[in-house]
Simulated assay, not measured.
Amino acid sequence: MSAAVCVLILSALWGHTVVSGDLSRPTKVRLTSHDMNLVLSWDLPAEPAGLLYTTEYRSSVINYRAGCVNISTLECDFTRHSIPQTIYQFGKYTARVRAHSGTETSAWVESNNVAMDKETNISSPIISLLSNGAAIEVIIQDPVFRISSLRQVYSSATYNITYWQDSQKQKTRSISNIQQSRVVLSDLEPWTKYCVKVQISTGRISNNLSQPSADVCESTTIDKEVPWVAAVVTFITMAIAVALVVVAVVYRKRISHLLCPKDSLPQHFKEDLMVRPNSSMYIAMCNSHPSEEIFHQVSIIPDSSIIEAERPLEAEPPHTTQT
């Protein structure tokens, strides 16, 4: 009788929920992290009919907190349902889950421990290729993290780039420890199709690598221009421009004197310019008189009808009536 009383008292205290050893517990409970999320998953108990589940999580510095409550799915994402700012990218976490059926509840089942920054699985980067003559530019985009970002968690992260001709995948070439998100592959053959794959290295001692990206292919076109040609042409152009400016500054007086001379003309040049021409045509033009203009005088006589029409009307005298 005393045992039954204790069960009833516990039932009242815990909201009529009874922990029963007969209710099957969830199995294969596991805690994982993918791109800085924190997900607890489990398999169905031996008797799965009509069960609901409640989850909790804790870190090395905080006690258990509520996660998903009374759910029917077999997974709980704590980074989606937890209290804000309670899960950190450098934290170490443990979780647990129990099943419910009516007023009965199974025992808690704890998961493994997960250190977020050391054990999270990193998705593959997204890459795109841009053909530029006989070179190909690789543009890399980091995966999106649920908490923080790739560079904030892994400040020493680098890219490993592997590339090959489309028909010769067994002859791959690679470059490692690249920090730039835009890389130019210049040692390529013109008019050739190349494929590229990129993987992220976190730079940690454990050498945590991301998933490799999908193979992306692009073709080169014309042969690349010799890089020093453009530099030489630019240098010569600038040197000529600087030389012209220096010459103009140093010899500005001579240049001004050449363009605008101050010397007067010799006297015999002035006398020759002032001599009256002896041309017969010029003499005839100077001695000629203006030709007399012939004209007839014209008188304009206005029409009388127009005059009458334009004359103002005179006021008629008023009529008087005799009585």
Rank of each mutant, 00 (worst) to 15 (best):
I300N: 07
F78S: 12
V242P: 01
V97L: 06
I294K: 09
P190Q: 06
A284V: 06
V18F: 12
V249R: 09
Q165H: 01
V184Y: 04
V114R: 10
S256M: 11
S72K: 09
G91W: 00
M281S: 15
V39D: 11
L150T: 00
V183Y: 06
A284S: 15
I200A: 12
A46M: 05
T172Y: 02
S124F: 07
D223T: 12
T192Q: 05
L244M: 14
Q170R: 06
K262S: 15
A99L: 02
I83N: 10
L265I: 07
T94A: 13
P84F: 05
S2L: 15
K270I: 13
P312R: 12
Y88Q: 11
G203P: 14
T27P: 10
T120K: 02
Q297T: 07
N208A: 05
Y159V: 08
S213P: 01
G203W: 06
I161S: 08
I306V: 03
H16W: 12
S101F: 04
I161P: 10
L52P: 01
D215F: 09
C76V: 03
A135H: 00
V183I: 08
W191L: 15
T158S: 15
I307H: 04
S305H: 08
P26Q: 05
T103G: 14
K262W: 04
R254D: 14
V232T: 10
R173I: 01
H100D: 02
E225L: 12
R30F: 06
T79Y: 05
P302R: 09
Q141W: 00
S123G: 11
S174M: 01
Q179N: 10
S20K: 01
T202L: 09
R146E: 04
S60W: 02
I301S: 12
S167Q: 05
R98A: 02
E292Y: 08
S123R: 06
S24T: 07
R173L: 02
S279C: 15
D77N: 15
P26K: 08
T162E: 01
A12C: 15
T32C: 10
K92M: 04
A284F: 06
V69E: 11
G50V: 01
V29F: 08
R30Y: 06
L13I: 09
I294G: 05
E47H: 04
S174D: 01
S181W: 00
S33K: 12
S148Q: 07
Q297Y: 03
V138D: 02
S24G: 15
K224M: 00
I240A: 14
L313M: 09
Q152K: 11
E104H: 06
I122N: 09
K253V: 07
V144W: 00
N121Y: 02
V109P: 13
Y282G: 15
T202Y: 03
D43Y: 07
H16R: 14
D35N: 15
I161D: 04
Y282R: 15
S72M: 05
E189F: 05
Q152W: 00
L23G: 00
T94N: 12
T172G: 03
T202Q: 09
K28D: 11
H34P: 06
C68T: 05
V250F: 08
